[in-house]
């Protein structure tokens, strides 16, 4: 297991190194001069020259890459050109919204999807199954920003239970923070839960068809015991894959929902930085998101190995 973990760690480090090069090349090298790009076509030559100096563009690309990565490793993400504040501060501020939101949505989606998938699989073909499959079909089909606006209409404007958007900050207390994140989290969780429930159902149906389930029944286990002791753990592998993908997506892909609810999250930060041509911020946030994705994948890999002994030996 230790060897497996070390190997996964090695592959994590390699992924990050490769990703950093790709991001650096894509943003700094390819589209011409970043300074004139950031300042727009009407900029005066001396302003461009000043920015070039500030960005270190007079250094060679390898030197700049090393300076950038060196900074990242020390937590120095550079200074935003538009806001004139350290990028690290901006990111950590936004992360305090995006990370809780992603975790909240993931928790909601898992809490709903697991029971729904299990009920649908164990009562295959029943009204329950048909109902769950119908609802999840709808959950996947409905665009989540539309669903988000619908919820704002019902719960914020008509019922006035929630505010229509914005984030009060965690200083206002845990409850106030969670309350502000509830509607966004529900809108994010809806499609995720629908997909997860369907994956859970089909994984469980496949597992329940396996020979070892029949063997367990022949030992005298009841249906419920078979499900708990043998089927669930085996069905978890495809489900974990999806959870890993979903978490990465939630962290970065919540842009639309963040915009609907005026949440100061990472997604909006990327969006705003791109509009403002603030390449320093874009570069760092994208790198951070890549880091999150790679770390989540690493965690999923470890979870696989914890579940399935066959994976610990292989490779």
């Amino acid at each position: 297991m230790l060897r497996y973990t070390l190997k996964r760690l090695l592959s994590l480090a390699i992924s990050l190194a490769v990703a950093s090069v790709v991001i650096f090349v894509a943003i700094e090298v390819v589209p011409g001069d970043p300074a004139s790009y950031m300042l727009g076509i009407n900029a005066r030559p001396d302003t461009v020259a000043a920015l070039r100096e500030e960005l270190g563009l007079n250094m060679s690309p390898p030197e700049r890459y090393i300076a950038w990565v060196g900074g990242l490793l020390q937590g120095d993400f550079g200074t935003s050109y538009t806001y004139r504040t350290p990028v690290a501060e901006m990111i950590s501020e936004r992360l305090w919204v995006s990370l809780p939101l992603a975790l909240f949505a993931l928790a909601l989606s898992t809490l709903v999807a697991f029971p729904a998938g299990i009920i649908a699989a164990t009562r295959r073909g029943s009204k329950w199954d048909l109902g769950i499959m119908g609802v999840t079909q709808l959950g996947i089909a409905v665009p989540n920003f539309w669903f988000a606006m619908l919820m704002v209409l019902v719960f914020a404007i008509n019922l006035r239970w929630f505010s229509a958007g914005g984030f009060p900050g965690w200083d206002e207390g845990l409850f106030a923070g969670l309350k502000a994140l509830l509607l966004p989290a529900v809108s994010l969780a809806l499609p995720q839960a629908s997909i997860l429930a369907r994956v859970m159902r089909s994984a469980l149906l496949d597992t329940l068809d396996e020979d070892f389930i029949r063997t367990a029944r022949a030992k005298g286990l009841t249906r419920r015991q078979v499900l708990r002791r043998h089927a669930l753990r085996n069905a978890l592998i495809p489900v974990l894959t999806i959870i890993g993908l979903q978490f990465s997506f939630l962290l970065a892909g919540a842009i639309i929902i963040e915009n609907v609810f005026f949440l100061p999250g990472l997604g909006r930060l990327v969006f705003q930085s791109i509009s403002a041509r603030d390449l320093i911020v874009v570069e760092s946030v994208v790198m951070l998101l890549v880091f999150a994705v790679v770390v989540v994948n690493f965690a999923v890999d470890l979870a696989y190995a914890a579940i399935d002994p066959r994976l610990r030996k292989r490779r």
Partner: peptide, 19 residues
Amino acid sequence: RGAGIGMVFQEPMTALNPV
């Protein structure tokens, strides 16, 4: 099942829980 009557099946490769 399992106490009074035991049963052995055909496919030993898949008859055991792999995890």
